[in-house]
Design a protein around this nucleic acid. Structure first.
Lengths: 146, 146
DNA sequence: AAATAAAGTTTGACTGTCAAGCTAATTCCC
DNA sequence: GGGAATTAGCTTGACAGTCAAACTTTATTT
């Protein structure tokens, strides 16, 4: 390993730690935000996706969440029992169901969304408006390479 | 809501989506990286922590991972059975155990670490060296506010 | 019309998780 | 020193999340 490579190695090592730490902090932030509500993290994620995109077919939702339809079936049933989502048959394709948020589900979605908004405020505060803009534009740029 | 607030609202909305998307991509990157190995994501995380910090007491490790000692006991047993970690009594405090990586555990840690390194290379490539430096320094700055 | 494919469900197995109650060792305080 | 309180870890019971595989019902293809 030559001098240049060694330099990169140490630098990248540091970057790696920063990214890992950031990721872990985000995880526990999300966890702590969710732990005041009646739903788990995975359940909140489901609610968020429907909240963002509106009514979806089970298959589509499973794809977005990255789980099998079997997994989704049981999650959906639990959330249905708790009153956050409701489902209805697609009259066009009778194999298919639509899943959407109930009033209670929308409420939960709004609360959660509000917490995200606060988080963003904190970030913009910490970096300043100009730096924040650069930061988020870089974050966006990265979405191709991760 | 006045005009300024409205502007922030839309802007922050966009930022929020970028951050959420980044977070989700990182999650599935991590998931996909782990899914070629013999260990789960949570197990890899445990291996990573010991790999970074070296031998630890069960209590300390549970604290770092953010789980109860009960949870850790069962995870550690499973990883012990699979041959990734080993444990030994602390001769000073006989209630306590040290947990460390076996040779196989170290191997798994190195492989995973290597994947992280690649990820960082990808990021630096995508942003360019100067921008990358700014990006990571901002990421670091945020660790106080999340 | 029969064969094939697709959407969703069910079930069995396993991991991750916590809370609560347990044992054994340590520390604190009288 | 000796009893009380604390601490480290373990065990167990209960559940959520997860997948794969087998299944049912409906749609599509040939």
């Amino acid at each position: 390993m030559n001098k240049e490579d060694q330099k990169d190695s140490d630098l990248f090592e540091g970057y790696s730690r920063i990214l890992t730490e950031f990721f872990e902090r985000m995880n526990s932030w999300e966890q702590s935000v969710v732990s005041g509500t009646g739903v788990s993290l995975a359940q909140m994620h489901l609610i968020e996706v429907i909240g963002n995109r509106g009514e979806l077919r089970m298959k589509e939702l499973a794809g977005i969440l990255g789980v099998t339809t079997g997994t989704l079936t049981v999650m959906a049933h639990r959330l249905e029992e708790k009153g956050y989502v409701s489902r209805s048959k697609d009259e066009q394709d009778k194999r298919s169901y639509f899943i959407r948020l109930t009033e209670q589900g929308v409420q939960e979605y709004r609360n959660h969304h509000h917490m995200h908004f606060h988080l963003i405020e904190g970030i913009v505060d910490a970096l300043g408006e100009e730096e924040a803009e650069i930061f988020f534009s870089n974050l966006k740029k990265l979405q191709g390479s991760i």
